[in-house]
């Protein structure tokens, strides 16, 4: 990981340990936005990971249905769209 990605991850971890317990987690997704950010930064680096995390946070609003939303895999070339979410076994 680049120092930039490390620093951003540090900021997210700091958030998880200070502000998050203070204001309460209200995420509509799984994994939660902060965990998503940590994973995205680790997998995709500061720039793309940060971008993915920003988009995720923007999505995390009452007008989005939310739900399962994993970080897209790193190896996938740009063309390949990541699978949206796993179909859920019902019943």
């Amino acid at each position: 990981m680049t120092p930039a990605a490390q620093a951003l991850r540090g900021a997210v971890i700091a958030y998880q340990w200070t502000l998050r317990p203070l204001i309460g987690a209200q995420c509509r997704f799984h994994p939660s936005c902060s965990h998503y950010a940590l994973e995205a930064l680790q997998r995709h680096g500061a720039l793309r990971g940060g971008w993915l995390a920003t988009r995720r946070i923007l999505r995390c609003n009452p007008w989005h249905p939310g739900g399962e939303d994993p970080v897209p895999p790193a190896a996938a070339p740009r063309a390949a769209t990541p699978p949206a979410f796993q179909p859920v076994p019902k019943g």
Binding site: Q26, C27, R28, S32, P65, G66, G67, E68, V88, K90
Partner: peptide, 17 residues
């Protein structure tokens, strides 16, 4: 979460707000 998504409901208000 998966259930919320398929049924289009979600009790949490989200991180953005």
């Amino acid at each position: 979460m998966a259930l919320y998504r398929t049924e289009k409901v979600n009790p949490a208000s989200g991180c953005l707000p």
